[in-house]
Simulated assay, not measured.
Amino acid sequence: MHRPIAILLASAVVLFLIAFTSTRTSAPWRPSILSHAPGSGGGDAAYVEARLAHAERLWQQAVEGRKEMVAQSGNRPFPDGYIYPYHVWDFARPSFFCPHDLERVGTLGDGGKVVCGMSRYEAASPGPSSATNAAPELVVYSFGVNDDSSFEAAMLERTNAQIWGYDYTVSGWAKQIPAHLASRAHFTKAGIGKGRTKNPPFFTVHELMELNGHDYVDLVKMDIEGAEFDAISDLVSSVRYDPANRYNGTLPFGQLLIEIHLIDGGDAFSTPKDLAAFMNWWHSMEELGLRPVNNEDNWIGDNSVGKPRFMEYTLINVLDKKKNKLL
């Protein structure tokens, strides 16, 4: 190698090392959301408002795009006829975005749920949950418990949560909830639907809220094997016909973690029979303030039927900003 070239290469290496060392020793970069946590100053409210306004514009674009998708798809057998050019789940993509962190809370498998703004909940209602914790309570409803309570256990450990759980197929919480947190987790063997005289009984969501003395729930987890269509439709009807204005024109919770099951409910519950019915149901949630920020396939469920029939969604309520701890 010629000497001038060697000198130039050596100089370049030295400059690279200086720049690299300078980068490594400087203050680490932090996502902006961490510098805008509740109570930290830094224009938190303005920051979140700007994020929400941008997300709303993206959602509006998606709403217009859906109309074109529906027109191009035509009338097909629902849901399995919608594969190409648009799959059935393409009509309900997460077109909004969480203005905070997205985190899976609970196990990495089917029992865990993706939460928008878990850090916000921890800051507003720090845990663990206990009778002596003076922090504001986080009200959580869990519809569908089955054999995994890792999500509920994590909420109790990390926030000052009070959790009300309902499932007519099991007799209590799963093993993940430790004894020292159990007093803040209230379980009732009951289903979601209509029919208090059944055994076990069934309740609508707003009936349970009235029984518990709640006009607002911070976070709702709903995994009720297809009955979610009736449950949400009933609640939507309650909000739309609300002469006392109890619900303030929006669904009475800050965040909804829901699994949608496109299955035949038979006589037990009703499910959409065509794309128009599915879109009307989906739009009814959005009309009352919910925005989808995340989704993921339930591969275990899909594999059991050999078709993509099950999808998990995270939706946040953007209308009730006075109560919603996320906003």
Rank of each mutant, 00 (worst) to 15 (best):
H2Y: 02
A6F: 07
L8H: 09
L9C: 12
S11A: 14
L15C: 12
F16R: 05
I18M: 04
A19M: 07
T21Q: 13
R24Q: 13
T25R: 11
W29P: 00
P31M: 05
I33L: 04
S35D: 13
H36K: 09
G39P: 03
D44A: 12
A45C: 04
A46T: 14
V48K: 07
A50M: 08
E56P: 05
K67W: 02
R76K: 05
P77N: 06
Y82P: 02
Y84R: 15
H87K: 12
D90S: 05
F91H: 06
A92C: 09
R93A: 11
R93P: 01
R104S: 03
R104K: 14
G106L: 04
D110V: 15
G111H: 07
G112I: 08
G112E: 03
V114T: 12
G117S: 08
M118N: 02
S119L: 13
E122W: 05
S125K: 05
P128V: 01
S130A: 14
A131F: 11
A134G: 10
A134I: 12
A134C: 08
A135D: 04
L138N: 00
Y141D: 05
S142Q: 08
V145Y: 04
N146A: 13
D147G: 02
F151P: 02
A153I: 07
M155K: 08
R158D: 09
R158Q: 11
N160T: 11
N160A: 03
Q162H: 08
I163T: 05
I163S: 08
Y166A: 08
Y166L: 10
Y168N: 09
V170S: 00
S171N: 08
W173S: 00
K175L: 05
R184K: 15
F187D: 02
T188K: 13
K189A: 06
K189R: 14
I192F: 02
R196N: 13
K198C: 14
N199S: 15
F203M: 09
F203A: 12
E207Y: 09
M209I: 05
M209Q: 12
N212C: 04
G213R: 14
H214F: 11
I224Y: 08
G226H: 07
E228S: 09
D230V: 08
I232T: 09
I232N: 01
L235W: 01
L235S: 12
S237N: 10
P243W: 07
P252I: 00
G254A: 05
L256W: 07
I260M: 10
I263E: 06
I263P: 00
D264E: 15
D264N: 15
G265T: 15
G266K: 06
A268G: 05
S270W: 03
T271I: 01
L275Y: 02
W281L: 02
W281T: 11
W282D: 12
L288S: 06
L290R: 09
V293P: 15
E296R: 15
D297K: 15
N298V: 09
N298H: 06
I300N: 07
D302L: 00
P308K: 10
R309Q: 03
F310H: 01
F310S: 00
M311A: 04
E312Y: 08
E312I: 13
I316C: 02
K322T: 10
N324K: 03
